[in-house]
Design a protein around this nucleic acid. Structure first.
Lengths: 199, 199
DNA sequence: GTCTATAGAGAGATAGAC
DNA sequence: GTCTATCTCTCTATAGAC
């Protein structure tokens, strides 16, 4: 093990994820990634077979985690408690530091992900989550609320969309990141617990 | 006016939007667009200065519409009625046939849009919508609900995410597209009207 | 494990004929 | 208004030295 600083492979993944998120997967060149790490593009090919391989190695992590949550739900009876537990597990997943950047990346590169196997896995996993949380017996309004519950948690890290985090926010209402996740989960729970008042 | 079938320029925009949505802006080549229209890439350059120009010409439409809604809201007093009116107008906008495809495209090409002026206009417009609907005095939970109200309407056309439209849905709960928009608006209204039960 | 050098493909864009 | 032909650039990927 003659690596300079903690495994080059992981540093490639880290920088790649960052650039993919910033400029998009297609627009990010291997040269950009290599330059940031002060290596040549050829060095990247020692660690990964192709550019798509770098993408996969990163996205597979997220896909597996999502599948894990979905599989837990599928092993449970289809009850409200299962749905609550699913939202809880999902909330925990997306707030873990490692997954935060991955969630952002996934939101901004849907088109690219759709054409890669790892991305398809991820999308299917998310689909499963929706299918589990949505009650097929409920009316459309309740199904929509359930969908919003999942979305709220999935997007809770997206500052760009929410603008609920940084400036432009009265100081009194500022909220710590940990509490943010907590309140988001609470709102999501309400959305699946207290169904609407009419059809 | 010797155009074969209703203005080539518009047909280019239409096909480009479709392909940009399917495969992403960066991955879609001008050759693909040209082939679909049975013309050469050079022909595209008669109608548009650059590839980015095609993107802009399409996105500008959407950006203007969104800005229009935001400007209406900014001209109103900051009341619940304004927020309701804003959601109504937004709902109308996203269900109009012309805007549906544009919304889908925007969701799947956030990274690309961020680097183009027209895309930045669009994103700022959407930001303004959020800022208008979110009550800066409210607590975080209520702000989150307001945000979800806007999201519900913005994403209401996204079949891929919702899976609430096609198959995998008991026939009894099937719902017509027109009614879908209506119910979505109603749920969104509830989210900004009936604030939460605790902080 | 990383380098230099380069192959090979495909992209966006332009010139000039028709 | 559309074509053919072509330029130029950049990208992914590989070969082979160190």
């Amino acid at each position: 093990m003659a690596e300079a600083r903690g495994d080059t492979r992981e540093r490639i993944q880290q920088v790649a994820l960052e650039l993919f998120t910033q400029h998009g997967y297609e627009k990010t060149s291997l040269r950009e990634i290599a330059d940031r790490l002060n290596v040549s593009t050829a060095a990247l090919y020692y660690h990964f077979k192709t550019k798509a391989d770098i993408l996969s190695s990163v996205v597979d992590d997220l896909a597996s985690s999502v599948e894990e949550v979905a599989e837990w739900g599928q092993a449970q009876p289809t009850t409200l408690d299962m749905r609550k537990g699913l939202l809880e597990r999902l909330s925990q997943l997306v707030s873990s530091g490692k997954m935060r950047n991955l969630m952002l990346f996934s939101q901004e590169n849907q088109a690219a992900l759709r054409e890669h196997p790892a991305g398809q896995r991820l999308q299917q996993g998310v689909q499963s989550l929706f299918a589990l949380v949505i009650d097929p017996q409920a009316d459309f309004a309740d199904q929509l609320r359930a969908q919003l519950a999942v979305l709220a948690i999935l997007l809770s890290n997206n500052d760009a969309l929410s603008l609920l985090s940084e400036e432009a926010m009265p100081e009194e209402v500022r909220i710590a990141p940990e509490q943010r996740a907590e309140v988001t989960l609470k709102v999501a729970m309400e959305l699946i617990t207290q169904p609407g008042n009419g059809a």
